[in-house]
Design a protein around this nucleic acid. Structure first.
Lengths: 305, 305
DNA sequence: CCATGGTGATATGGAAATCGTATCGCCACG
DNA sequence: CGTGGCGATACGATTTCCATATCACCATGG
């Protein structure tokens, strides 16, 4: 979208709230004719008639009503940015914060935490469950010091160290005929709705799934998008589709979901330890070392059985 | 805020993502000098320096980093409006968005989803995993239409209908001596570090835990705080403490965690269905009715066995 | 030490966008 | 039927934003 339009959504909101072009114009500190013109430009750009002009003033059309909540959220987002900028304009304890994706929560994280606590019992560790893209963002901002996530490559200033390879497995609703099989040929998913995480959350996961499907000769049929691995499995449990998930998710054994290996194993980007090289500290270096040591010689806890 | 600024946030994002004014300008279809000028105007308007210019390019300042999440949300809001306008232009599609806390993801949600899908197969349902406080916020903002969360009471405009009572159970690291017991007397937790969710995330949970401990004659010894139920269990699995969790969390069977009932049952605020009465629709009313019907006569899926 | 190249910044003129003002078209209402 | 109030059109003025030319600075390599 041409971002110039965003300004005009403010105009649209003003007219809706006032129910009158003249009063809305006054509120916006402009005269009525250019306001009319701006609204007309907006309607042309969107290809949607937003306002019904009547002798008694203006009110939103049905289409305008549908857009209103989203336009209000846009307005609220703008106000939130403004408020935050004001706060920023107008200010850390020996604490390490680790961000961790859900699928690594019980395989990668616990052994690292135990070893670190053994070495430095006095250091406080906070854990935040985040998705991969959120971990990158949080690392950049310094909200977390370290992350266990599916980071594919270094992106300055974020560095990563791969810990172990991973693979995708199939998740189906219990009772699904395919669940009777010991393993799944991916081509069986060709006509099934596939519940996926958006690419923005984990590009490595998303691209891996799309590639695997294409390699099996079909394009994935996207079902609903969700915002977390748990929501993804919940939709599978609800019978709304099947999914490809990283093997770590099987650790949760959620009710209503059956996991099956794929006949032709599909590699996935494994969990890596990631950190911000511009915010490196002795603590983070030590945690990285521990994570690497544990990856080299895994204990029983880090294996799926 | 002058809404003209919003356009410039897009410029800011482009520079952050490219790390280079020239490449960002190319991406935005403009030349580099006016982009520099626009960013400068934005910085002056906000009174905040957003970018650090170096010989290697540009990267966000600390203040810029702090604003980034809000700016990204603004961008997402703009994209959402655009996408919705496109959908509206092409013909209406019915969509319902449900927010759900993790512990209700596999007990409360799936039967409701199945029944709703049976009745209205053409309606699209989106699911978002959120914590209780986030669901209230999302309901107010209209980002979700309905929520399954531990909402204790109505807070205008949010209404809630309790679905079923719940209780707290003990979560201990496997191998912990107490895990050998069939049930736990809560007083045994008196000197153990207790991993808890912050009160902001779920006041009902937090107050329930504190009350239960006091009723057993001790004050809880707080261990680390976490941002999600999964992170909470991960810390338990890591041996960093014990926890009291809602019975729904046992559904996950995470490795390294043993669940035990409490000798004296402790009631917890149960999952409720919540909605925004100012945004009620036929679809949300139907979902509420389904949830209530299922709560009155639960099927096998909604019980912990 | 110095020349060079690449970064963002400044200067300038022109095009495009947006505005205010004047006025129009339409029609519900008295 | 006249009138007044609504939004729309027309037009010139002003502001905004752009491309281009060039500059200032400095890390880098010879």
């Amino acid at each position: 979208m041409d971002r110039s339009l965003i300004k005009r959504f403010g105009h649209f909101l003003a007219v809706v709230e006032e129910g009158h072009f003249g009063r809305a114009a006054a509120r916006l500190g402009m005269s009525q004719p250019p306001l009319t013109a701006q609204i007309q430009l907006l309607e042309r750009a969107l290809g949607v008639k937003l306002l019904e002009r009547t002798r008694q003033g203006a009110r939103p059309t049905w289409e305008g009503e549908l857009l209103l909540p989203a336009v209000r959220r846009l307005e609220e987002s703008a106000l939130a940015v403004e408020a935050l900028a004001r706060e920023v304009r107008l200010g850390k304890r020996e604490l390490v914060t680790i961000g961790c994706i859900t699928s690594a929560m019980f395989a990668t994280l616990p052994p690292v935490m135990r070893e670190f606590r053994r070495r430095r019992p006095e250091t406080v560790i906070a854990v935040r469950e985040l998705d991969t893209s959120d971990t990158l963002e949080a690392l950049r901002r310094g909200e977390i010091d370290l992350a266990f996530a599916r980071v594919e490559r270094d992106v300055f200033p974020i560095r990563k160290q791969a810990l172990a390879p991973d693979r995708l497995i199939a998740a189906l609703p219990e009772g699904d005929p395919l669940a009777a099989l010991p393993e799944i040929d991916l081509v069986m998913f060709a006509n099934r709705p596939l519940v996926m995480l958006p690419r923005a959350i984990s590009p490595a996961y998303f691209d891996g799934v799309v590639t695997a499907c294409h390699d099996s000769g079909f394009a994935p049929v996207p079902a609903r998008e969700v915002n977390s691995g748990m929501a993804q499995l919940a939709l599978v449990a609800s019978g709304l589709g099947v999914a490809l998930v990283s093997s770590g998710m099987a650790a949760f054994s959620p009710p209503g979901v059956a996991f099956r290996p794929l006949t032709a194993p599909v590699e996935a980007v494994g969990v890596a330890v990631a950190w911000n090289q511009e915010r490196e500290s002795a603590l983070t270096r030590e945690l990285i070392e521990i994570a690497q040591d544990i990856a080299v010689r895994p204990g029983p806890q880090s294996e799926i059985s």
